[in-house]
Amino acid sequence: MIEITERDKKFLIAINETGACNTQILFRFYPESYGKERIRKMEAEKLVTRKYGLIMLGAEGENYLESVGEAPKILDRFPTEKQKKIS
């Protein structure tokens, strides 16, 4: 299990607020080379998942947000039209 840093927490909350993000948003939180490695580690731990070319919360990411008092929003449960608008 990786240690979730304050920067990771802010990134997960940002994904939660928007539903998904692309790599441009990722690089606002992390330097490019570090961000690529960090997102791989977070994906391996199921904190995030990649779907449709976007980065979204994974199962463990949702659990983590619940543990810190954030209510996770789940993109897959949005209507298909709304999912298309987001991406």
Rank of each mutant, 00 (worst) to 15 (best):
M1W: 03
M1H: 14
M1D: 10
I2F: 07
I2T: 11
E3V: 11
E3Q: 09
E3F: 12
I4V: 15
E6H: 13
E6W: 02
R7N: 10
R7P: 00
R7V: 14
D8S: 02
K9W: 01
K10F: 07
F11G: 05
L12V: 10
L12W: 04
I13L: 09
I13R: 11
I13C: 05
A14C: 08
A14E: 14
I15L: 03
I15T: 01
N16Q: 05
E17L: 10
T18G: 08
G19R: 12
G19C: 11
G19F: 02
A20N: 07
A20G: 09
C21I: 15
C21M: 12
N22T: 08
Q24E: 15
I25P: 00
I25Y: 08
I25R: 07
I25E: 13
L26M: 08
F27Y: 15
F27A: 06
F29R: 06
P31W: 01
P31N: 12
E32C: 04
S33H: 12
Y34M: 08
G35I: 05
K36D: 09
K36I: 07
K36F: 13
E37R: 15
E37T: 13
I39S: 08
R40H: 03
R40F: 07
R40K: 14
R40M: 08
R40E: 11
K41V: 06
M42V: 04
M42Y: 04
E43H: 06
E43W: 04
A44R: 15
A44Q: 13
A44E: 14
K46M: 06
K46N: 15
K46W: 01
K46V: 00
L47G: 05
T49C: 10
T49R: 12
R50S: 10
R50A: 03
R50E: 09
R50M: 11
K51Q: 08
K51E: 13
Y52H: 11
Y52I: 02
L54H: 00
G58C: 04
G58Y: 02
G61P: 02
G61V: 10
E62H: 06
E62W: 00
N63T: 10
N63V: 09
N63A: 11
E66Y: 03
E66D: 03
S67P: 07
V68H: 07
A71R: 14
P72R: 04
K73D: 02
L75C: 02
L75T: 10
L75G: 00
D76S: 15
R77M: 06
R77K: 14
F78Y: 13
F78N: 00
P79F: 05
P79Y: 01
P79M: 01
T80N: 00
T80W: 04
K82C: 00
K82L: 11
Q83E: 11
K84D: 08
K84Q: 09
K85A: 05
S87W: 08
